[in-house]
Amino acid sequence: MRITRTVKYEAERVRGFGREIMAVPGCETLLSCIQCGTCSGTCPLSVYMELSPRQVMALVRADFKDEVLRSNSIWLCASCYGCTVECPREIRITDIMYALKQRAIRDGVYPKRFPIPILAKEFTAMVRSKGRVTETLLVMRLFMKANLMAVLSSWRQGIGLIRTGRFVLKHERIQRRGELETMLAAAARDKEGS
């Protein structure tokens, strides 16, 4: 049996982290969280999480940034918004999860071979270059980056898609890709500038 020491020191807190997350629209009510656990009870995926959504909320409020960003909980959130509509304090938990995902990607602290953040990045890259997403191509890219074995286990779906005429190998794209690029660049540049 391995024994670990779990005390939390004040130095481990990242002051202002909770406040930063609460600046997300609708998330300021996190201060009123009464730790009732409705979010965890509602969440279809909480049973797989290292930290239940309630614990995530508690840790965010207490400025324990690393603990939260490194947990798989934020990546298991499937954005079903169940917690958000059920929370008796009207805390937008799903949006907090998004804010946490963004910071985890920004800080590069997400699990490296974990497929979900990879999917998010691949998806984003495809949208930026093409303006639209071609699901079959996206999945193939994902499999190549994350897990080649998965391609093999999914052959049935592939065959099925070909059979039902849904296996697309040509990129969907928009016409005015330049316009999109300009927009995103303008928004991003000024954001950094400010």
Partner: peptide
Amino acid sequence: DDWNCCGATAYMSVDEQLACVLAAR
């Protein structure tokens, strides 16, 4: 005419502001 991807859940996970810009187009 010339609609683009809404960004879905994935883009929100990467950058909320840009995701909104993308969708707002």
